[in-house]
């Protein structure tokens, strides 16, 4: 059963025209990761005892070696024209290239939240996060979005942090909320 699936997709993903060269980047990443894991593994003090004859080093070193091997095998697969099918989905349109501007804006909004969450508190940073991501995704109803963002942040803060005891920081609004 398994190999049926294997072969069928292997044939269909191996298109003669044009390799997906970006996959070599993945190979490089895997090789670097493998090397890093080995270096980190060898840097661990080799502690073995009668209760633990394996020690903490063995598994990372094995993993690192496997990562290197897999990087090489993957490179061979890519060179032979293998490619992975990009994931399709309800809202995904693969006929166009990637929209990097949107992705970058999303990352910025995400990082703003990560940096500010403890200082300003979830209500403010969460508002910025929702408003910023909606903006990044192309919504231009600035005022309406702000209202939704504030409402969402307040509702989640009261429901989760105060109602359910989930850890969300109040930040500068401590004592006001």
């Amino acid at each position: 059963m398994s190999s049926q699936v294997d072969e069928r997709s292997a044939e269909s993903t191996r298109s003669p025209e044009g390799k997906d060269r970006a996959q070599y980047g993945v190979c490089a990443f895997l090789a670097l990761l493998g090397a890093a894991v080995i270096v980190d593994g060898l840097g661990i003090r080799h502690l073995t005892s009668t209760t633990d004859p394996v020690g903490p080093r063995t598994v990372p070193v094995i993993l690192g070696v496997l990562l290197l091997v897999v990087a090489a095998v993957y490179a061979v697969d890519v060179a032979r024209g293998g490619r992975g099918e990009p994931e399709a989905g309800e809202d995904v349109d693969l006929s166009q290239g990637s929209d990097w501007r949107t992705v970058l804006l999303l990352i910025v909004a995400f990082l703003v939240n990560a940096v500010l969450i403890e200082r300003l508190g979830w209500v403010i940073s969460g508002t910025l996060l929702f408003w910023g991501t909606a903006f990044a995704l192309g919504n231009r109803h600035y005022v309406r979005n702000l209202a939704i963002a504030v409402a969402l942040s307040l509702i989640t803060f009261y429901a989760f942090a105060i109602g359910l005891g989930v850890n969300l920081p109040a930040g500068v609004l401590q004592g006001i909320l």
């Binding site: 989905g89 809202d91 990637s98 999303l106 995704l137």
Partner: peptide, 8 residues
Amino acid sequence: LWVAAHLR
């Protein structure tokens, strides 16, 4: 992120 990069 993936959908955002390819939003229909």
